[in-house]
Simulated assay, not measured.
Amino acid sequence: MFYDDISVYPAFGGVVFAQQEGQRIAGYLGPKNKNMIMQNHGLLTSGTIGATTGGLKKTLVDHETALYTKKGTGSPEAMYMQFEPEYQLLLKESDGQFLE
C-alpha cells in the first residue's frame, strides 16, 4: 500500500497556517507520493501525488509550538470530531461486526 509511495517530513512544527509551510510539505511529497510520515506528529495522506526524501532524523518540536497545537487540535471535542466520521464509516462497512 505504501511501497514507493511515502515521504518523510522531518520538520513538523505545529498547525500549518503559513502558505510557505504548505509549500514545504508539498515539496516533500514531490511529484508522485500520496503519503507522508510527519515526524513528531503522525501520518498524512493526500489525493495528490509527491516524492521521497532520504533519511529519518528525530526533530524536536519546541514546547510552545507543541502546546499550541495540542490546544487547537487535542481537545476532547476536536478528537471526537476526527473520530466520529471514521467510526461511522467502519460501522457501515462492517455492518457493525467489529463491535462483537
Rank of each mutant, 00 (worst) to 15 (best):
F2R: 11
Y3M: 13
Y3S: 12
D4F: 10
D4C: 10
D4Y: 11
D5R: 08
D5E: 12
I6T: 03
V8D: 05
V8A: 08
V8H: 03
A11W: 13
A11S: 08
A11Q: 06
A11P: 00
G13A: 13
G14K: 00
G14T: 01
A18L: 15
Q19G: 05
Q23P: 07
Q23T: 11
R24Y: 04
R24N: 11
A26M: 09
G27L: 02
Y28M: 08
P31A: 06
P31R: 08
M36I: 04
I37Y: 10
M38D: 00
M38E: 00
N40E: 14
N40L: 02
N40F: 05
L43D: 00
T45I: 14
T45Y: 06
G50Y: 02
T52S: 03
T53Q: 12
G54V: 04
G54N: 08
G55A: 10
G55P: 11
G55R: 04
K58D: 14
T59A: 14
L60Y: 09
D62Q: 12
H63W: 01
A66C: 14
T69D: 10
G72F: 13
T73P: 04
T73K: 08
G74M: 12
S75Q: 00
P76N: 08
M79Y: 09
M79F: 06
Y80A: 04
M81D: 09
M81C: 02
M81A: 09
Q82G: 11
Q82Y: 07
F83K: 02
E84V: 12
E84A: 11
P85T: 04
E86G: 05
E86V: 05
Y87R: 13
Y87M: 09
L90C: 11
D95N: 12
Q97V: 00
L99N: 08
E100S: 08
